[in-house]
Simulated assay, not measured.
Amino acid sequence: MFVVTLSYLTDLDQVDAALPDHLDWVERQYADGVFLASGRKVPRTGGVILAAGLDRAELDRRLATDPFAERGVAAYEVTEFVAGRVADGLAHLRES
């Protein structure tokens, strides 16, 4: 499982210009089953994504196709972790 932290590199006008394409890209990641949760940071300086069901190389490949990455408006930090304990209903996320 991965926690992806996005940090904006440009002003919000440029982020907002890329946002519709970014949200389409996010929707495709959910449709593929790799994104578990996503949203904006507060204050609005970037975002956070929880992803699972893929390896680091595939995650990196997908992140490179994000319109935010393609337009240079965000940088990404990826942290991989092993979920040893999860809430009820999320047992499929725990590594056995």
Score class of each variant (00 low, 15 high):
34 V>W: 03
12 L>E: 06
42 V>I: 10
82 V>M: 05
47 G>T: 02
62 R>V: 13
44 R>C: 12
40 R>L: 12
36 L>T: 03
80 E>C: 08
51 A>W: 00
57 A>M: 08
47 G>S: 02
50 L>P: 00
71 R>Q: 13
72 G>Y: 02
35 F>E: 07
14 Q>W: 02
24 D>T: 09
43 P>A: 11
62 R>Y: 06
27 E>L: 15
51 A>S: 11
75 A>Y: 00
34 V>Q: 04
44 R>G: 03
48 V>P: 00
87 A>K: 10
23 L>E: 08
59 L>E: 00
60 D>F: 08
27 E>F: 09
36 L>V: 13
87 A>D: 05
52 A>P: 00
37 A>M: 12
29 Q>R: 13
61 R>Q: 10
23 L>Y: 02
67 P>Q: 09
37 A>H: 02
70 E>C: 11
19 L>E: 09
21 D>Q: 15
48 V>N: 01
64 A>Q: 03
40 R>P: 13
53 G>H: 08
68 F>Q: 03
22 H>Q: 05
36 L>S: 05
62 R>S: 11
45 T>V: 14
39 G>F: 11
69 A>R: 00
78 V>D: 02
87 A>E: 08
17 A>E: 05
19 L>M: 12
78 V>E: 03
45 T>N: 07
88 D>I: 05
21 D>K: 14
69 A>P: 01
24 D>F: 05
23 L>W: 01
37 A>L: 11
13 D>V: 15
45 T>C: 09
14 Q>L: 12
26 V>L: 11
83 A>S: 11
7 S>W: 06
56 R>G: 15
86 V>S: 07
8 Y>H: 01
77 E>I: 12
83 A>F: 02
71 R>Y: 04
81 F>A: 09
79 T>C: 09
7 S>Y: 00
27 E>G: 13
33 G>D: 13
8 Y>M: 07
27 E>W: 11
59 L>K: 01
38 S>H: 08
43 P>R: 14
35 F>R: 12
49 I>R: 08
20 P>A: 14
32 D>M: 15
80 E>N: 04
59 L>C: 01
24 D>C: 14
18 A>W: 01
74 A>Y: 01
22 H>S: 13
74 A>D: 02
28 R>I: 07
35 F>L: 15
35 F>W: 07
35 F>A: 07
75 A>C: 00
23 L>Q: 04
54 L>H: 02
38 S>V: 10
42 V>Y: 05
65 T>I: 11
13 D>M: 09
70 E>W: 06
22 H>T: 07
46 G>Y: 03
43 P>V: 10
54 L>N: 10
79 T>Q: 13
15 V>K: 02
32 D>V: 09
89 G>Q: 11
